[in-house]
């Protein structure tokens, strides 16, 4: 009897935290691997339109992006409120698109070029005029696979 009373003197034993760093490191590595740092700084206001029939874009390395929309509030003083095209980090004109496409192509392997997609990220308030111009330029540049970026519609 005495044996038992002696043993149960000090409450619950402390849980060993020795493996805590390991667990945290595991999580850390997961997030490090999945993180994609934003490459481009958005200079435009971008609210994507909603759609239901959307498909995921595969092979992100083969996608080049064209952003269209009104300049952000802070930049409206310099660039005005008309919708503009953003390629990489700078505002561009419609006539810059063929150069952009060919520079994107140069970055990839030759045999990957036919699978390249251009993702059009266009703000929903934009008028079709500028989008039509972009599409015509893309046709001329022979970049025929496009993707109208959209959000999944909440049902």
């Amino acid at each position: 009897m005495a044996k038992f009373t002696k043993k149960g003197k000090g409450g619950t034993p402390a849980i060993s935290t020795a493996s805590l760093p390991d667990i945290v490191f595991m999580l850390l590595f997961f997030f490090m691997v999945t993180t994609v740092m934003r490459e481009t700084d958005l200079k435009i206001k971008l609210k994507l339109p909603e759609a239901t029939e959307i498909k995921k874009l595969e092979k992100k390395s083969l996608v080049s992006y064209i952003y269209v929309g009104k300049p952000k509030k802070s930049l409206q003083g310099i660039y005005g409120t008309e919708p503009r095209i953003q390629l990489n980090d700078v505002f561009a004109k419609v006539s810059d698109i063929p150069d952009y496409i060919s520079s994107e192509r140069d970055k990839r392997d030759e045999k990957e070029v036919p699978f390249m997609t251009t993702s059009l990220k266009v703000d929903e308030e934009t008028k079709m005029g500028i989008v039509t111009d972009i599409k015509q330029e893309l046709r001329k540049a022979n970049a025929l696979k496009i993707n109208y970026s959209a959000r999944k519609k909440a049902e």
């Binding site: 995921k56 874009l57 996608v63 993702s119 109208y148």
Partner: peptide
């Protein structure tokens, strides 16, 4: 990234 895929 998701959206409507089309071909020109």
């Amino acid at each position: 990234d998701s959206g409507l895929s089309r071909k020109l």
